[in-house]
Each structure stands twice: as structure tokens, then as C-alpha cells.
Design a protein around this nucleic acid. Structure first.
Lengths: 213, 213, 213, 213
DNA sequence: CATGAATGAGCGTTCATTCAT
DNA sequence: TATGAATGAACGCTCATTCAT
């Protein structure tokens, strides 16, 4: 594309996403994670993104839409990972362990992202109810429920469990484990501590799911 | 605990807690549950309590203290229940089942209370960090962790689990299960549906904890 | 009223209108007249009323409602005057002259009020369309149209005129005469100049209305 | 007049006014008439003109100048008509009737234009005070006043009337008659209704002016 | 000429908190 | 105790204007 023309792509874009929009979204993740929904001011995001106040409103209709986008993006990443794990090889236990592994690994390098992902999901219930957040979350539950169903079909997991409730518990345990780290109840200062928490949480939830438990 | 309570013996009724204070607290539970932290305005609470605006500030230093008190009260109820269950007879599994049973039962008659208890705990992290909420929450984790430790001591639960992480997962699964009901992912319209969700969630988490799983 | 009780009526009221509300409304008339709808900032009104910013929103839902109230009040005064003139004695010509006289007289002592009354009526059409302004204006037209009808009934005014159109013209001529004074096209610095403009305008419009003209 | 026009011969078409500038001006008339001064956003005009945002600022220094130009253009049309009528044959009454006729006729085919012409004249007083609008308006008044003077000189109109005040009333009655149609007080849905309103208004004002009334 | 991204001051509105009674 | 009027800082959003290309 753009063959022969001047190779411009300055402050703008060329079929892709404007870099300033990226910067805003990127900054929003951190500010949002740091200060929560109510404490996350547009001015903070703009400043963190080294961008003029008004530009936020050039790319996003309003605060809700901006934070919805943050949600959507973070969840999209997680969803892709879950789906890839889901469609890949391995037992149901492997896959669930894989999901846990992914989230804990991301936490090591980008705790803010995980924080948004996990901590704020249920939080802003009302304000964002109309948005796509809830559907996205439901889809995640369904995706994990599918993993459970497959595992039940292969006789790996307890057949009597309701897959949706099981999926809820799987993600719930994951959420509070990460919450615990974020809040400081569960120690997670070193990589080893994080790995330890990961192993424990994984073991715990898998123990409840395995057939013949 | 007496957090935020007026120091001198208040109330027009001598000896007890002033009824207006009660009304405010009571109203706050519902408004808080209904609208969340940010959406919960002092004016709403006062109106719902059929009390003058300023009276809220007579009994509570500020918004945070009011909502802290709501937390504290709801958690106190749960803590007492947990403690009673803890100190009572039965295996660790019985006790954990008892805790789950208690929360789900309260949900049947007072979903607002549970909503506050569960949904808002991690939410308002930053705003309330200075307050007693976190300590209360930690104490709950420790209480459950004690149950786990006791169970491990008696050989009922897997000895290799970190009690704190286990407790975190126990409450985490509980949280998201209830969240699921509140948000509507998990069906909970009838008493039977709620009981079913309770059984499933209990089974799931206990499966992960039992020794020889 | 208030017999025997402590004669309090401090910053408050006693069955009447709070004085601060009065002050805000009073200030709004001037600021509105001075700067027009768009230029009239809430901050200006508050400052002019020697009142805190937020108090404006204590008494008025928003800017539109405030300015609607200004309209309503000014028009109410005019309407009362018109109605009194209408119901009083005299020929239709006397009554129309009376209305003109009233408006020009008010202009001498309170040009701001007239300015709001006249200049801004049609102006903020869209913003205030939903409000009561238009209905009020229509009522004024009807009231004047009634005067015309009565005059036609008594043979004083041309019978072939549509009373509504006549009323529209009567008020229109009045409006632009006053507009002319406000804007400076028609000289109105001294009381004499104002009276001269009044006489001329009255004569002009009456000339068009009188039977056998 | 050339107010606000790009100095050098513009347009891709050599010799005339650039068509984009035309489009902007044309669009501005409608948006302005539709939304009023404050509601008329540059973005709206640009969109309606199918032109890039920034181009508006290429042809006009700022919003005020754009809307001044709209005024100027519309008034120029009216002024030319008035002047032609003025310099043409006929009595003063004929000429005034001609002016009324012109405005009402334009209203039939381009109500937006008349709306701008009439409704917004006095409105934006302050914002545009520095501009040429007022002078233009004053010139219109003078032009009509000249017609009155001529009529007085020929003994057709009452000699005792101040020509300026008379002109003010003539235009005032015209304004409110049209305003009434625009706002909906005076019925103007069919051509017949418009014509009826025209005749009534004309008769009314001429009745006030004719000598021996 | 033409584009539209980028800027930032300005303003309406909310709402926790205080205060006079 | 109880009331609710009064305060003002804070923040979301708009939109005229500029600028780089």
C-alpha cells in the first residue's frame, strides 16, 4: 500500500489506528487501574498521554466510552488468549491451567492491565450496564464453560457440575486471587511469589473440578 | 467496634442507638447496593431514610465514614456468623458449606445486603484504603484461613495448600457466584435456583480442598 | 401571620419567597438584559446577586429554567398590566395607548426589564421552545387580540382586520420601537425623547386600526 | 461591500467567487436559520456545505465574520429590492406595500432566508455590535424613512410623523408578522394564508401612515 | 486551496461539606 | 437533635480556533 507516494504517516495513520488514539487508550489503562473509575479524570488521562484535553473527545464520545474501550481492549486480549488455549491441544485441566498461567504472567509485566481486567469488571456495573462490557464478560464465562463441557465430555471433569457455575467459580477464584495480590493480602512482590500464588490457585480450582475428586 | 458512631450516648430513647442513625444506615445499605459507591449520593440516603440532609453529617463525619459503617455493619454480621460456625462443631467442609449456606440464605431475603457485602468489597479499594474495610476483609480471610488450617490439622483438607490462598479462593468463588446471580449470568430468580447455585458452588470449592482429591 | 412567634425571617422566608431567590432572579434580569442569552453566565448572575455559585442551582434546575423564570416574571408583570387595562374603562384606542404607555414608562425606570421582555422574546426560540415562554407570549397576543375584538364590536376599530394579526402588529411595532431605543437608533436618552417616541408609535399604530381610517 | 471576502480573486474558476465559499455561505443561511446564533456550530455549517472543517476558516476569519456575511448578503438582497422599489414609480403606500410584498414573497420560497433576515437582526446585538450588521440595519431604516419622507413631501402620508420612528414601526410590524408565521402564531402553511397575512399587515400599517387617517 | 487532527479555554452542572438557626 | 439553605471546588463536555501537511 501507499506505493510510490511520499511515505507519510506523521501524526496520522494509514489504514491503521491513529497513534494518538493509541496513546490515550494506553494512558487510560494505567490511570484507570491506578485510580478506579470515579477517580479517573479525563484530564489525568490526557496528561498521561501527553495529549491535549480535547483530543480525548475527538476520539471518544465521552468518559464511559473511553473506559468501555479500555475494557473491551483488555478483554479482547484475554479472550483471544482463552480462545487460542481453548482450541489448542491438551486436557481441560491443561487449558484451565493455561488460562490461569496467562493471566498471572501478564500480571508480572503489566499489573495495570490485569487490574483493569479483573478488579473493575463487576465494579462499574451500573454506569456501564448499557455498554458491551457485560456481554464481553458473559462471553468469557461461556468460553470457559465450553472448556468445562469438553472436559466433562472426555470424562476428565466431574459430570454433575453446571458448566456455567463452574466457569463462574473458575474466574471468580482467579479474580480474587489476583485481587488479593493487587490489594496486598496475597504476597506478590517477587516473581516467585506470583508463581507460587498461581500454582496454588490453579491446584485449588482444578482439585474441585477433576472427576473422581 | 463503634466506628464512626457518635461518642456520647445518643438517641432520643436513652441507652440504645438513635433510631434516626439506624434509619440512615439502613437506607444507605439499599442506596449503596442500588447505585454503587459513586452513584450513592448523600441526598439519596437522606431522602430514603426520611431524614434531613444535614442529619447524615450529624451522625457520620463524611460519605466515606458512612459507607465504611455500612460495610462494617454488614461484615460484622457475616463475621459473627463465620465465627459462630468456626467455633461450632463439624468438619472443615461442614463449616465452609455453612458459610456458603449462610451467604446464599441471606441473599434470598436481603440481596441488597449481600450485594454490598460482596460486590463492593474490592471495588472502592482506593477511596476506602485508609478505612477499616480492608482490615475487616483481611480478618474475614484470616478467619476462613483458620478453618482451612484446622481442617488441614485434622487431615480433612489437602495439607499442601496455603491457607490464605485457599481462603481467598473460597471467598472469591463465593463472590463471583453471588455476583453472577446479581448481574444475571447465574439464574437466581426462584429459591430453587438459588439453592442449586449454592450446592454447585459449595461442591466445586470443597472438591478442590478435600484431602486425597 | 407568624403571630406571637419569634419574628424570624433571617436568610429564609415565612410562606413567602426566599430573599436569595429574589436576589438571583433580580440579578439575572440585568445580566440577561446586558449580555443576552448566550453571554449570560451563571457565574455572572451569582456574582451580581452576591450569592454562591451553587445556590443558583439550589433554586433553579438549570440555566434554561432560570431564564425561563426571568421571562415568566417579567411577562407576568406585563400581562397583569395588560389585563388590568383590558378590564378597565375606556375605548380600545385608550387601552392600546395604555399598554404602550405602560411599557414605555417601565422603560424609563427599568430598561433592563423591558429589554428582556421585548428583545429576548423571539430570540431564544429554540432553546426555550419547550418551556412556557411561547405560551405566555401567545397569551399576550390573545389578550391584545381581545382588545381589538372588543373595539371592533363597538365600531371603534376597522372590522375587516384579523384581530390576531392586528395584535401581532401592535406588539411588533412596540417591540421594534423599544428595540430601536435600546439599540440606539431611536433617541431615548431623556424622558422627553422617550415620551416623544411613545406618542409617535402609539399614534402610528392607532392610525392603522381606527375605523374609517 | 466585500465584507470578509478573500482579498485576491479566488475560486478555481477564475473571475468569480469560489464555489466552495458560496456553498459555505449557502449552508450557513440554513443552519443559522435552523439553530440560531448560539446553536450554529462551524462543524454544522461545514458538514451541511460538504466541505472540510478548516475551509470555513480559510474563507472567513471566524464565526462572527461568517454570520456577519450571511446577514450582509441577505440584507443586501433586501436592500437592493427596497432601493429598486424606492427609486421606482408609485406612491409611498405602493412602495411600502411593495416592500412587504417582497418579503412575504421571499418567505414563500425561502423561509430560512427571511428568518435570518428578520428573526436574528436584533438578537445577536452584543456579539455583532462591532460588525457591520447594525449599520446595515440602520441603513435599511433610513431607506424606509426616506420613503416616508417622500410620501410626506407629496402629502400622501401624515406630516407629523417622525420618519425614523415610522420606519421603525413599519419594519417592526413586518418583523413580528413574519416572526408570527415562523413561530406558528400566525398561520402560514399555504400560499393563501401567507398572502392573507401580507394583505392584513400591509393594510394595518398603511392605515397608520396615510394622511387624513 | 484543502483537510481534519490537535488545542485548550470556558462553562454548565454536580455534590460533598459547612453553617446558621 | 434536627433542618435545609449556602458554599465552592471539581470535573465532564463543547467548540471556536489553529496548525501541520
Amino acid at each position: 500500500m501507499n506505493g510510490g507516494r511520499a511515505p507519510r504517516e506523521p501524526g496520522g495513520h494509514a489504514g491503521g489506528e491513529p497513534e494518538k488514539r493509541r496513546a490515550i487508550l494506553h494512558a487510560a489503562v494505567h490511570v484507570f487501574a491506578e485510580k478506579g473509575y470515579q477517580g479517573c479524570r479525563i484530564a489525568d488521562v490526557a496528561r498521561a498521554a501527553h495529549v491535549a484535553y480535547g483530543l480525548v473527545y475527538h476520539y471518544f464520545r465521552n468518559k464511559d466510552e473511553l473506559l468501555e474501550s479500555v475494557f473491551a481492549e483488555q478483554w479482547a486480549i484475554l479472550m483471544n488468549a482463552i480462545q487460542a488455549i481453548d482450541e489448542g491441544p491438551g486436557t481441560a485441566a491443561d487449558k484451565i491451567a493455561g488460562i490461569y498461567g496467562f493471566v498471572f504472567d501478564v500480571y508480572k509485566t503489566a499489573p495495570s492491565a490485569v487490574r483493569v481486567l479483573i478488579l473493575e469488571v463487576t465494579r462499574t456495573t451500573h454506569a456501564l450496564r448499557a455498554g458491551s462490557t457485560r456481554e464481553t464478560f458473559e462471553r468469557a464465562v461461556q468460553l470457559v464453560a465450553d472448556v468445562v463441557r469438553q472436559g466433562q465430555g472426555r470424562g476428565e471433569l466431574k459430570p454433575e457440575l453446571d458448566p456455567v457455575i463452574a466457569a463462574t467459580a473458575i474466574l471468580g477464584a482467579l479474580e480474587l486471587a489476583v485481587s488479593g495480590m493487587v490489594v496486598g493480602i496475597v504476597p506478590a512482590r517477587t516473581e516467585e511469589e506470583i508463581d507460587r500464588a498461581k500454582r496454588q490457585a490453579t491446584e485449588l480450582v482444578l482439585g474441585g473440578l477433576r472427576a473422581g475428586g
